[in-house]
Nucleic acid binder design. Sequence first.
RNA 1: GCGCCCGUAGCUCAAAGGAUAGAGUAGCGGUCUUCGGAACCGCUGGUGCAGGUUCGAUUCCUGCCGGGCGCACCA
Length: 553
Amino acid sequence: MILAHLRKALLRELAAWAAEQGLSAPEEALINPVPPHVPADLSLPYPMQAAKALKRKPLEVATELAARLKDLRSPEVDFPLLESAEPAPPGFINLRLSEQALVWNLAMALGRPADGDSPYGFDPDAPKRAINLEFVSANPTGPVHVASARAATLGDSLSRILRRRGHGVRTEYYVNDVGRQVELLGRSLHARFAELKGKPSEFPEDGYHGEYIKALAAEAPPEAEGWGPPEFSRFGVERMLTAHRRDLEELFLVRFDRWFRESELHDAKALDRTLEKLRKLGRVYEKEGAVWLGSSDTEAGDDKDRVLVRADGRPTYFLSDIAYHEDKLARGFKELIDIWGADHHGYVPRMRAAIEALGHPPGTFHAIIHQLVHLFRGKEAVKMSKRAGEFVTLRELVEEAGLDACRFFFALRSPNAHMNFDIELAKKQSQENPVYYVQYVHARIHSIFREAEKHSLRTSPGSHKEPTARALLVKLAWFPEALRNCERELSPHPLASYLMELSGLFHPFYEQCRVVDTHAIETSGSRLNLCAGVARIIADGLSLLGVSAPEKM
RNA sequence: GCGCCCGUAGCUCAAAGGAUAGAGUAGCGGUCUUCGGAACCGCUGGUGCAGGUUCGAUUCCUGCCGGGCGCACCA
């Protein structure tokens, strides 16, 4: 929060200075954390950029600018923001926050989000976005696979963070409840059911072979004797969907605001309407009996045109997908963000092309592509095939490794990171998961609170001189910035990394600064206050990641 | 063959073009009569290769090497 004010104040000052120099104003005042050897809180690299444009010496520019920044103030607060602003080679300005600024920021961090409309981390200046975030959307033809854990973590954590930032976000799960895969599910169940009844059956060639199919067939009601594959399809989809909801929402704590069924589109004739709209816009043509979208003729960069309606008259999956996205936009969303595995990345340009062809502004559609998780058991790669039934379920992993360990583990990784995930290690050595490192600090602080309670010591605002305490205060100020980075990167991993760093700073403080001390009530009070801030941010940050913050471990 | 992603410490990963590349974990050596040893402190260990752009490159560009994933009138 204080850093947002600082950035704004810096930007004003830099813009004024730039105008005097005949430069265009910088778009943003970029501030960076400093490396350990630098005795400051933050650094401003702007002088080096300005020096280039002005063809002047960077350090000279930094010196000139630093002098102007010393007494920097913000209209939102009534104290000076900085204690010092010093030029440093090759052309940084190193900033040290004022004590008032740090104390004020701690108070903001400790404010109760539930009470106000401006919780810590909320960004009043950011333009509000209306986002539909779709993720997982696994076919209801089998249990939720471990491979979905990454997308589920990404989507759920990101949606929580974006909401905290003040955006309107609705999460959505698209259910492919019609089509070939679902038919195959019905035929597989039909065959397994017949087997159970000792009747002759023909198991479909590409059918689903997993044991769960047999188990599911065994659960079919008595009247299933008279069912054909379509009835088994319906039965199977409903059962699978129920299991998906249970695994994702109850087990993995991933919430979807809407479970949208493809069949809803067919019922509403949405495919016809979308096709008609594209036709009117002149974006489709017929060739060789099929209807094509002129997707290569767009800015989206699709390399070829795509079939919407096959020569036999059946619509492609692509068309229903377009209709689905059109439906989301009709519901008022301005941005559609889909989270897809890297195995679908080739689908991005055509989807973008379709959105463009429908006349929506560029940037309406965005795909977050996450790299696939390669599963191992020890050294051995796990092949995953739903049809062969060889896979590890999400439930299996969570029940063995623990929810917190799983969610934090995936949250730490950038979507672009290719990762090898050793299931044995995850199950066996869950103690090594960094999440415990973070949770431990939270539990430790609450232990301090319990100790303070015994001596009737209470938190009180106050300043902090010790370097370890000051480092914590500065780190607390970075929390909103971490959330901002999450929004920019469209990933929760900057927050997870931040929590690791914050936690790492607590222990040195703990070792050097005795908190509970009945001979120093005032110091105890201000240190308890700092502890409260750290605990609050850890609990808050972990909750944004869907991870618990236990008071005892 | 073309396209997208990646290659960073033994392992799993960070790092808005910024300073001496950070964490966790593993390894080695220390720290236990006070708030939690699931801890702390110290040491060891580094950007695949070759060029280029830049005051400055893990980051951008080119080429190479290695890996993952795509390239349907499948979903």
